[in-house]
Design a protein around this nucleic acid. Structure first.
Length: 644
RNA sequence: GCUGGCGUAGCUCAGUAGGUAGAGCAUCUGAUUUGUAAUCAGACGGUCGGGGGUUCGAUUCCCUCCGCCAGCUCCA
């Protein structure tokens, strides 16, 4: 028997017989490693622990501490789920069953929908199969033979025809279950210790909404019961900070059925927070060389034909309305209006870049099933700006925009975000407007900007806007979903469509280039994400009520009001709780409403001109002279610092 | 828009195997005047999402529309 050389991660080498399995090598290193092993990395690729090594290779044993091992483990759990479904519901068609960030899913096609009770049965069956300790066995099959074997399984057949090499791998689980699958998998079902099926929902075959409708069973799996329980607990906790729940509880916003879905009502307390956000943003605009403009909410249809939205954006627009002899369109975007301001006079190269900014409210038709609280609505206000500049200025402008976007995120304490660079499809589909050279140039400028600011942007092919490529910044909500906030978009197209010009130093007319950018993205969405980010406990500068003054008894009301007056003179938002309740109750109310500071006033305070300071997070801070308390809270508000 | 689920008081929820509903909180009133997360009592409050059908009778069963939730698709 020939020997092969196995190189371990520490550089050491082992001679083993050809055909040795990674699990055997692991055991030869230590029994514990073999027990903890989930999957092997062989020459960089993932391998089953039980797959024989035929040639010399590098080998790394991945244990439960490795994220890739968790993916494999979840993938194996998905197979277990499919095997359970087939045992309980023979004839069900299998789609795909990959691991995801938070678990796994498996797509099935079957006439009757899976009910919550079915889910319980499936989970019980999974445990039953788990207990059988079935190996995940890798079998190689020849393509034509495979197509015959899977002739009853139309989705698998499709996948094999499309993806399989001449010989492809399958994995069995017991005598009856076999699945076309690249693998790898854990060695056997007894390795799967903790999982839970979470829901059943709809999906489309190959994510195509014209394709077959499937039922998706989603679950999660962890290496231990403890980790699973922690995860489930964390999900429950996250739900408590859902912006829809907090928005109602804190009386910030509402959505009114009578007015229509996806349309936001800002209540007084939400309104004051929004004003703080908007004031801050407008100040930043002015500091950074933007001008503020205001434009109408509707415009003639011809405007949208000129801009191209009539062609490229028709599906997302509210219906046109007729007025006199003309048709008008509610605006889904602000850009054409800002362009008209640019175009209203002859521009010199000396005044470029022109940066026109607006908190512009737009209306877009979003399909009913996609609406989601504040995060996906039909009417929203963008902190939108359009920058018109010379080609040689565009890269600096994009760098400034991106820097601005990063500054917004840090101001509000977001340290986790993802950047994406969306590019076109190369022009194949015709959904994109403009010349190839322009697209290439634009993409290059965006890439360079990312590099200059050290922003790691993931390239997303075929995700660009119809008028140009873009950089997007995404944040994650309480339930782990990603939402786009900032966007910096390049545009060669609209300047051409509108015939924009500036007079250059050569005395001739040239076409400016344009950058669209929104940093909050939409005020509604940003507010929703912010609400979840702070779990409703806003920092002092944003809190709708910054201070609650809590008199102990009625005889302290006058003093309480004088305290409130002093706070108001300092520009703070104050409420006096004059209910006939005990202080304990007043404190509770203020805590529940997440008021940052409570000032308790009773006999001692009224006598000494002091207040007893209570901090929302840290509780009783003892008494302080009134001036001192006012200065403290005002300082926090003005600094726009995070709370505490 | 699609698949599935859901819709009972302002909020959170219970209930009716078909005989027009109940709790806690909130609100209002009264008593209590209280020192760092809920004082007590009483009252008010619902065409049980809208419309249609079956039935002697529908909040309950059926149909339909609207809205919400999860996922898909799409996107700020």
């Amino acid at each position: 028997m020939s020997e092969i050389t196995i190189t371990l991660p520490d550089g050491s080498q082992k001679q083993v017989p050809a055909g040795a399995k990674p699990i055997e090598i692991a055991r030869s290193i230590s029994a514990r490693l073999a027990d903890d092993a989930v999957v092997a990395r062989v020459n960089g690729g993932l391998f089953d622990l039980t797959r024989p090594l035929e040639e010399s290779a590098s080998l790394e044993i991945l244990t439960s501490k490795n994220p890739e091992a968790l993916e494999v483990y979840r993938h194996s759990t998905a197979h277990l789920c499919a095997a359970a479904v087939l045992e309980l519901f023979p004839g069900t068609q299998l789609g795909i069953g990959p691991p995801t960030e938070a678990g796994f899913y498996y797509d099935f096609q079957r006439e009757a929908p899976f009910t919550p009770e079915d889910l319980e049965k499936i989970e019980a069956k999974m445990w039953e199969i788990q207990a059988r300790d079935l190996p995940y066995e890798r079998v190689m099959t020849q393509k034509d033979e495979g197509l015959r074997k899977y002739s009853d399984a139309w989705m698998k057949c499709g996948l094999i025809a499309e993806k399989a090499d001449e010989y492809f791998s399958e994995y069995t689980l017991g005598p009856h279950f076999i699945d076309f699958c690249r693998g790898p998998h854990v060695p056997s079902t007894k390795r799967i210790k903790a999982f839970k099926l979470l829901m059943v929902s709809g999906a489309y075959w190959k994510a195509n909404e014209k394709g077959a409708r499937l039922q998706r069973i989603t679950g999660t799996a962890f290496f231990s019961k403890k980790e699973l329980d922690e995860y489930l607990h964390q999900v429950e906790e996250a739900k408590k900070r859902d912006h829809r729940k907090l928005g109602r509880e804190l009386d910030l916003i509402s959505i009114q059925e009578l007015a229509g879905p996806g349309l936001i009502f800002w209540h007084p307390k939400g309104g004051i927070i929004r004003k703080q956000l908007e004031d801050w943003m407008r100040e930043e605009y002015l500091k950074r060389g933007y001008s503020l403009v205001y434009t109408p909410h509707v415009g003639r249809w011809q405007l949208w034909e000129t801009s191209g939205h009539a062609n490229f954006y028709a599906d997302n627009m509210f219906d046109r309305m007729e007025l006199d002899d003309a048709e008008y369109q509610l605006k889904p975007m602000n850009c054409p209006f800002h362009i008209l301001i640019y175009k209203d006079k002859l521009r010199s190269y000396r005044e470029l870049p022109v940066r026109l900014g607006e908190l512009g409210t737009v209306y877009r038709y979003e399909r009913s099933g996609t609406l989601h609280g504040l995060l996906r609505v039909r009417g929203f206000t963008q902190d939108d700006a359009h920058i018109f500049c010379r080609p040689d200025q565009i890269e600096d402008e994009i760098v400034n925009c991106l820097q601005f976007a990063v500054d917004v995120l840090t101001t509000f304490g977001f340290d986790k975000y993802e950047a994406e660079l969306s590019t076109w499809d190369g022009g194949a589909s015709g959904k994109y407007d403009g010349e190839p050279e322009q697209w290439q140039l634009a993409e290059k400028a965006l890439r360079n900007a990312c590099e200059r600011l050290n922003v790691a942007a993931k390239v997303m092919t075929d995700e660009a806007a119809f008028y140009g490529p873009k950089i997007d910044v995404k944040l994650v909500d309480a339930i782990g979903r990603k939402w786009q906030l900032s966007t910096v978009q390049f545009d060669f197209t609209l300047p051409r469509r509108f015939g924009l010009e500036y007079i250059a130093d050569d005395g001739k007319a040239h076409q400016p280039v344009m950058c669209h950018r929104a940093l909050f993205g939409s005020v509604e969405r940003f507010f929703g994400i912010l609400l979840e980010h702070y779990a409703g406990a806003f920092p002092v500068w944003l809190a709708p009520v910054q201070v609650a003054v809590l008199p102990i008894a009625d005889r302290h009301l006058d003093y309480a009001r004088s305290v409130a007056a002093a706070l108001e003179r300092a520009g703070l938002r104050v409420e006096v709780d004059d209910n006939k309740e005990k202080v304990n109750n007043k404190i509770r109310i203020a805590q529940v409403n997440k008021v940052p500071y409570m000032l308790v006033v009773g006999d001692r305070e009224a006598e000494n001109g002091t207040v007893s300071v209570r901090n929302r997070r840290h509780g009783d801070q003892g008494s302080k002279p009134l001036d001192e308390a006012v200065a403290l809270i005002r300082g926090l508000a003005e600094s726009r610092k995070p709370f505490e």
